[in-house]
Simulated scan of single mutants.
Amino acid sequence: MGKISLEYLDKIILYLPRIPLALVIIAAGWLTGKGWNKFYMKISKNSRIDPLARKYIGRFVYIAVFALSIIIALSVLGLNISPFIAGIGAGGLIIGFGVRETVADFSSGMMIFMYRPFKIGDYVKIGGVEGEIVAISPVNIELKGKDNKKILVPNRSAWGQIIYNFTREGKNIVTLQLAISEHVHDINEILKSFLENKGIDFKCFLTGVSVSGVNYTIYLEVPKEKIFATEEIIKNIWSALKDRNINATITFQS
Rank of each mutant, 00 (worst) to 15 (best):
K3N: 09
K11T: 11
I13V: 14
I13P: 02
Y15M: 15
P17R: 05
P17E: 03
I19G: 08
I19Y: 02
P20T: 11
L21R: 10
A27W: 05
G29V: 03
G29L: 03
G29D: 06
L31H: 07
T32R: 06
G33D: 02
K34S: 09
K38Y: 03
Y40C: 03
Y40V: 07
M41F: 07
K42C: 00
S44E: 05
N46L: 06
D50I: 09
P51M: 15
L52S: 03
A53F: 01
K55E: 01
I57T: 03
R59Q: 08
F60K: 07
F60D: 05
V65M: 08
L68E: 10
L68G: 07
L68V: 15
S69P: 04
S69M: 05
I70C: 09
I71G: 01
I72G: 05
G78P: 14
G78Q: 09
L79A: 07
L79K: 08
I85T: 11
G92W: 10
I95K: 00
V99C: 12
R100S: 12
T102A: 01
S108V: 02
S108P: 06
G109Q: 02
M110Q: 00
M114L: 14
K119S: 04
K119C: 04
K119Y: 01
I120N: 04
G121V: 03
V124E: 02
K125D: 11
I126A: 00
G128K: 14
G128V: 09
V129T: 15
E130C: 10
E130L: 03
G131P: 07
A135G: 05
I136A: 00
V139K: 00
I141T: 14
I141R: 03
K149L: 01
I151P: 02
L152N: 09
N155L: 07
A158L: 01
G160C: 08
Q161E: 07
R168G: 08
G170Q: 13
N172E: 04
N172R: 00
I173D: 08
T175M: 11
L178G: 08
E182N: 05
E189R: 15
L191W: 01
L195M: 11
N197Q: 15
G199E: 15
G199T: 14
G199W: 14
D201I: 05
K203E: 13
C204R: 08
S210T: 12
N215M: 14
V222Q: 14
P223Y: 11
K226D: 10
A229K: 11
T230W: 07
I234W: 11
N236Q: 14
W238D: 06
K242P: 04
K242H: 12
R244W: 11
N245C: 02
N245F: 15
I246Y: 12
A248C: 06
T249V: 13
T249F: 12
I250G: 09
F252P: 02
F252L: 14
Q253A: 13
